[in-house]
Amino acid sequence: MKCIAYISKAPLTKSGVCLPIGLSDIVKASNRNQRSNMTGFLCYRQGYYFQVIEGPHKEVEQLVLKISTDSRHSEPCILIDRRIYKRCFREWKVSVFDFVDQSQLFKQFIKNYKVDAASFSEQQKLGIQKFYDLKNLSYSKNYEGKNLRLIAWPDLNQISQSQTIINLCVKLTKKPYLFDQLVDDELFGTRDQVIEALDKFQNLGILTVTESEIVKQQESEIIRIKNPSSFFCAIKKFLGVR
């Protein structure tokens, strides 16, 4: 059996932007690994792919050769290429969310393969940092007295599409909101439910938590309740939304 792990870059578009073009096709194609003898995982983050493939020697080599000529990525940088006697991953996994804390898969990889990141070349370190830096990121679960803001919408396939969650996302994507205000509004569930949702956003890396002093000038905006426009009310009535 063999294991190959590599990092590669997502391609540049004509306008010079690094985008994971064809990611959904890559996921579809990589899911075929589930049906074959391959285990490991595929991750995508911030313009980089990270893949670990374990399986029979010949099949792994053939797959990696095929992947290396795939135009949907470039500059593959091999991190590991070694014979193994035992698999470290029980199954094939795909983790393609840009913001997700992928340290679990990565921790497993580092631990099982006894990878010493310090021994990597500069090029290898540069690539691995896209996935490795999350390990050092610690976030506070204490939201009391803090301002909260979403820097992006979550994937609503991962987080529930319930009206409460959507309303919470609407609020937090527009401007920072005090945690205490969220709870007091009683529009987003109980305190525990609000914390649960915020924890999910934190895990996705899309929630910013700042001290309330820093956003003082916006506090008056947060507190001032905007009167809904007549058009808003008319649409609500039309849609039968209370």
Partner: peptide
């Protein structure tokens, strides 16, 4: 397929960002 729909969502979000 749920995962590839999510991956498509990811591609789109990268463009939006």
């Amino acid at each position: 397929d749920k995962l590839s729909i999510a991956a498509l969502g990811q591609e789109i979000r990268a463009m939006l960002m």
